[in-house]
Each structure stands twice: as structure tokens, then as C-alpha cells.
Amino acid sequence: MTGSSQRGTQRRSLAVSAAPSRLTRGLILGIVGAVFAIPIIAMIEFSFRDGLSGGYTFTHWTGLLDPDSAAKFRSLTTGLTNSLLLAAVTVGVVLLLLLPTMILVQLRFPRLRRVLEFICIIPITVPAIVLVVGLAPVYRFLGGIFGSSIWTLAFAYGITVLPYAYRTLQSNLGALDAITLSEAARSLGASWPNVMWRVLLPNLRRGILAASFISVAVVLGEFTIASLLSRQNLQTAILLISKSDPYVAVIFALLALLLVFLLLLLIGRVGSRRPGAPRRITTRKQTREQTPKPDLTQGVPS
């Protein structure tokens, strides 16, 4: 008895010593926080400056509401509309193309999982400028089919969001015993559409929402591809306007940041809300109770 409790305390003290001390943690958090906060604070400060006089004023912010300046912001409105449209189409591409592919691979072709993961991670390793060089001839071709409307850019964005969307979806899909659940549903008489709609999608809700939000965040912040392919989106519009009115440009950049922050905050919320099915508890319970046994549903069945 004493032996086991002693071992317990030893393990606990070891765990404490392995974690960074309060001071180290605070220091790391402080530095990382400063890296993010300083530019944002500088932007806020800049948006209140009164020209070169050295004083501060609210006119740049109040000017936004001035009906006279609406014409000045037309390019911004177009850019924002375009970006929102692009975000919507990109989410559509992710949910209609990537998600079904991932589910199919998970259920039917588990050996392709590694390949799919590799393919989906590639875009993060390719610089946007390289991507554009490759995409330019593709878009010349696409222009012949779809015309040069802005939404076609979503094809390129669908690729750039792949790594983020894949990881968020996969972490949800991987925690789900999708094979057994769909087999159980099948044996209960469910057709494949029913398996998808009533069993898999409700359990993937969290991953789907997170992937959608992160895709929206990436698309709203995208500049390089749009700029180099001469399309107008929120970021290119901000750049354009900064040439005539740097204050407004900074204000819009701040507002765009705020929107993305809110989206990311929502992603975090989606994970912790939902009284219905907190998956984490289930998996923990299962690992405790399940004796270590080979998973017959995945390898060669006995």
C-alpha cells in the first residue's frame, strides 16, 4: 500500500517538474503575446492620429459613417463582397469535395489515408507566388469556360485552405469509429445517404464548423493570389485604399482582423458547447474500459 502511494507521489512530482514553471510560462506567453499585440496596438494608435500634428482625433473613425465618403469606399465594398462570396464558395468546395473524399477514404480505402494527408498538406509548403505561377495558365483556360468572374478564385483558395480544413476535419473523423458506426447503421437498414445524413454528419458537426470557419478566416486574409491574378478582394482593396487614405486602410484592416478573431473564437466555442454529445468524454471512457484488442474492423478481419 505504502509502495503504491509512494510511487503515486513520485509520479506526481515528476509530472510537476517536467512542466515549465509559472515564470517560464508567463515569459513565453508574454513574448508571444507581445509579438501579436504590438502591431495591432500600433495600428489602433495610428487610426486615431491627427495627421502629422501629433494629436489624436476620432475623425477617421467617424468618417466611415459619413455618406459623402461612400464613393471613396466603393472599391472596399466590392472587395469585401468579393471576399465573402469567395469564402462561401471555398467552404462549399471544402464541404462538397474534401469532406466526402475524406469519409470515403476513411470507410473504404484506409490505405489511402496517408496519401490524402500528404496531398492535403502540400499547399502549406508551396509559397503563394509559386502557386500563382502554376495557376496563371490554369486560370487563362478557366477564363475561357467560366469567364473572369471573381468566384473562380475559390478553386485556388480551395487548395490553399486544404491543410487547415483537412486537419480540423481529420481530428474529428479520426476520433469517430466511423467504420463501426456506419456498419451498425447499415445493419439497421440505413441506406448510404441515411448513413451520411443521420449518423456521420451529425457526429462530424464540430469538425465541419471548425473547417468552415478556418476556411473563411484564410480566405478573408488572402492577398497574394488575388493580387497577382489581378482580382479584387478585401485585402487588395485595403492596399488600394491605403494609397489614398492610409487611416481608412488601417481601420479596415483592424475590422477584418476583428472579424477573423471572432470566427476563431467561435471555433473554440463550437468545441466546448453542445451538451448533446461531448465526444471527448466518450472516447476517454472507451479507452478505459476497452481491453487492448486488435481492431478487427480495420485490419484483416479474423
Binding site: 469517430l176 469509429d177 463501426t180 456498419e183 451498425a184 447499415r186 445493419s187 451529425p202 458537426r205
Partner: peptide, 20 residues
């Protein structure tokens, strides 16, 4: 016959209740 048309009941080794 596909699985959903065989009218059989099945209980699996791993817990297979729909979590939601």
C-alpha cells in the same frame, strides 16, 4: 443483397452506439 436489405440485427465488438 446489400447489408441494409438483409433484415439482420447485429451487435459489434466495439461500442457502436451513435454518440449523438
Amino acid at each position: 443483397h446489400p447489408a441494409n436489405k438483409r433484415d439482420l440485427g447485429m451487435v459489434f465488438q466495439s461500442y457502436s452506439l451513435f454518440p449523438h
